[in-house]
Structure formats: structure tokens, C-alpha cells
Amino acid sequence: MTAYIVRRLLYAIPILIGVNLLTFVLFFVINTPDDIARSQLGDRRVTAAAIDTWKRAHGYQKPLIYNENAQGLGKLTDTVLFNKSVRLFAFDFGRSDSGRDIGYDIGQRMWPSLAIAVPTLIVGILVNITFALLIALFRGTYIDFWGVVLCVILLSVSSLFYIIGGQYLLSKLFHLVPISGYDTGINATKFLILPVIVGVISGVGSGTRWYRTLFLEEIGKDYVRTARAKGLSEHVVLFRHVLRNALIPLLTGIVVVLPLLFMGSLIVESFFGVPGLGSYTIDGIQRQDFAIVRSMVFLGSVLYIIGLLLTDISYTLVDPRVRLR
């Protein structure tokens, strides 16, 4: 088990290097640092001196990949690639183009993201499982049919409309919760209610339908027939046998998103004015701040890889038949 985890972690290194090279090429080869400087300075007729100053101030003055003028190992380390990318491996994000410490900002903005994402995930899963079990209990009846139709209708609506509709109904019409904003500590609760509700509702269609197929797949198996044959009631069959066995695919689907919760949701956060990592990324995009976007891409990939590893480990925990070698 330990050997497996270590090997998987080692395997993550080339992937992260790949991610890093890819983003580096994407960011600095298609558009040279000169182009970036020009668009940051905002004017098409900027002087070469102004571009140089900007590059020097933001650390783009060195050669991109290979520095001929440096000595020894400096040939590779005294470059933009090393300074901007390799340091990410030590989670040293450096400074954003507007001069703020990205690592500090991420540490600060992580919590609002989690405050929205975790309740949304938990409530969402509970709601989805409840609905899916209900539909599975009435399978083959009109409730099943219309339940699935309702799911398809729900998942055909763009999430933007759930957000706009939620804001309009709960905040503007009934004045129950504030439209958007955020506060520290316990005061944040009233700002969190609406995003969580919207997040749950917008996921209910696809979630319920997916869980329903999982349950129905389990219901068709032999052990369920055995359980029925020995006279167990339908409820016991469903809740004790089917639910437990369906947990395996269900859990693995959930575990993989767990680490990504840190990243928050781009759309929800920027709509509700929550200062989380999602809105941080959007701000970075809109200000064309390359340093922020690059750090977030890297962070996202790291978290995703952790998620995959956790999924494999959780397999062994819920299903004793699975052995990791």
C-alpha cells in the first residue's frame, strides 16, 4: 500500500512537469514577454524602454529557456522558465503582475471557497441520493418516468438561470437573504445560504439521474434477488443492500472532486461576490494577470492528481476485494 502510494506520487512528477511545460509554452511562446508587456501597458505605441522597464520589474528580462551568458548551472536556472515555473514545485507562487504575494492571497481566499463548496457538496449528495432512491423505489411506474423527465428538464437549464432566478426570487422578491457579498466569521452564513441552495438545485438534475442509473444497475444483480427471495422487504433491500453496494462507484465519483473544492466555483463566486479562489481566477483573467492564472492552473492540476490518488485509496477502503499493488 505504502509502496503503491509512493509510486503514484513519483508518477505525478512527470505529469506536473508536463503541465508546467504546457502552460509555459502556452503563455510565453505564443505571445512573447514583449507582447505581454505591450498589452499590460495598454498602448500600442509604447517605447522599447517602457517595455524593458516593465519586463525588468516583473522578472521577464531573462532569456526564455536557455541563458548563454550565464555560468555553469546558471545557464538553465537564470531563465524565465526556471524563475517563473520551476519554483511552483516548491509552491512558491511569487508575485502577481500587480505586485501582490500570490501564495498569501491563495491562503486567504481559500476559506470562502471552502465555505461554499463543502456545504454545497454535502447537501447536494444527500438530496441527490434521496431523490434517486425514491425514484428507484418506484421504478417502472409513472413516478419513475416523470422523475426522469423532470431531471432531464432540470439539467437542460443553464446554471446561469438558476443563479439569476435564485437571486431574483429569494433576494429581490422575498428579501430573505442578501443578493451578494461576503463577511467574516459567523456573519458569513447569511451570504452563504443562497449560493449553496443554487449550487444544490443546479446539480440536482444530473446528479439524481446518475445515481438512479447506479442504483438500478445494482438492483439487477443476483444478491438483490437473493435478498428478496429470503423475504426481506423492499425497503430493507434498497437501503441496506443496494445503497451500500452502490456506494463504491458513488464514493469514487465524490472523492475525486474533494481536493478541487479548494478551487471553488468560478461562476458562483463571481456572481455572488464571494472573495474565493474562483473569483480570484476570474479577476486574474479579466486583469490579464498571467502570474495568477498560471499559479491557479498549476494548483488545480496538483489538486486533481491528489484527487485521483485519493480515489484509488478510497477504493480499497470501501471494497476489500480491491488490492493496490
Binding site: V19, L22, N31, R38, I285, Q288, V297
Partner: peptide, 23 residues
């Protein structure tokens, strides 16, 4: 490729395209 979250990759790519189009 798949370990980069999709939205972020799109965001990065479109950002780069914007700079390219501006220049």
C-alpha cells in the same frame, strides 16, 4: 492534459488569444 482543470485551461488559452488579437 486532463489533469489541468478544463475551465482554467480555457481561461488561460482565451487570455492568450486576447493578447494576440490585441497585438
Amino acid at each position: 492534459l486532463s489533469s489541468i482543470p478544463g475551465v482554467l485551461l480555457i481561461a488561460a488559452a482565451v487570455l492568450i488569444l486576447q493578447v494576440y488579437l490585441d497585438n
